[in-house]
């Protein structure tokens, strides 16, 4: 456990020093500020636009950070040959992967906390109210980011950073498309396409189930059962991806 924590802290330090992390975070905050301008341009509910953009920015830039920072870490370690130094120590490959994951997870936590703080502050400035219910959307986003991060780590144990970045992006996109896709093909006559929709639906994570943004912003009731089931689903998927990453990495020939 201590070894995992040590790797995690090192990974965290390394990734928060990354220029990509800072620039993405800066753009995320910029997007939050931009929502103020847009709010002024609209007819009607300003706070709705601010909430939409705030939650959207947390999700979008979280995904980008998870991908861009997540994919390169294992690869960089091998490229710079520092992995020999690490693995020469009494550290198992499983501990290495878990440590990396924990460190990046911490980095994502920084992003989510900074952005959420900004969003709450903006809402408070506008309405003098703290919208605590926004957490019902932010927590599922956080779980989704964990899943994306695990996918990024899994792919990075397999292929080069560029390809694993693309693949992670594809998982994110298809993950949000599958449920819509399945509904779109319901009325089609072609059974092959229906089958394909089903296959996609069961192989890729259904990330739409973690999307509570619209319901939270419009103040609709969210059943607790649905909420916790979706979180459990995301956790199970994340753990599965980490197992796969460990499995691949244990068999990888590190040269």
């Amino acid at each position: 456990m201590q070894k995992i924590i040590a790797i995690a802290i090192n990974t965290f330090r390394e990734s928060v020093r990354d220029k990509i992390f800072y620039s993405l975070l800066a753009f995320a905050v910029l997007m939050l500020a931009f929502s103020l301008v847009l709010g002024n341009l609209t007819i009607g509910d300003e706070i709705k636009i601010i909430k939409d953009f705030g939650l959207g920015a947390i999700s979008l830039f979280g995904v980008l950070i998870a991908i861009f920072v997540g994919i390169s870490l294992v690869y960089k370690e091998m490229e710079k040959r520092t992995i020999y130094v690490i693995l020469a120590n009494p550290i198992s490959r499983t501990q290495f992967i878990l440590g990396k994951y924990a460190g990046l997870s911490l980095t994502l936590m920084v992003e989510v906390v900074v952005m959420s703080g900004g969003l709450f502050a903006l809402c408070y400035m506008k309405d003098q109210v703290i919208y605590w219910e926004l957490f019902k959307a932010i927590i599922p986003i956080w779980f989704e980011l964990q899943l994306i991060l695990a996918a990024a780590i899994f792919f990075s144990t397999l292929v080069s950073p560029f390809i694993s970045g693309m693949l992670t992006m594809v998982v994110f996109m298809i993950g949000h498309l599958t449920s819509d896709f399945r509904q779109l093909v319901v009325n089609m006559d072609n059974p092959a396409i229906k089958k394909m929709a089903d296959v996609l639906y069961y192989t890729f994570p259904n990330l739409e189930s973690l999307n509570y943004k619209a319901r939270v912003v419009h103040g609709l009731a969210i059943p607790w059962q649905e909420f916790f089931l979706s979180l459990a689903y995301a956790t199970a998927y994340t753990v599965m991806l980490l197992f796969m990453a460990i499995f691949v990495f244990n068999r990888k020939d590190v040269k």
Partner: peptide, 9 residues
């Protein structure tokens, strides 16, 4: 994707 509301805004 997951940004329906932003596109709508």
């Amino acid at each position: 994707l997951t940004y329906d509301e932003i596109v709508a805004d």
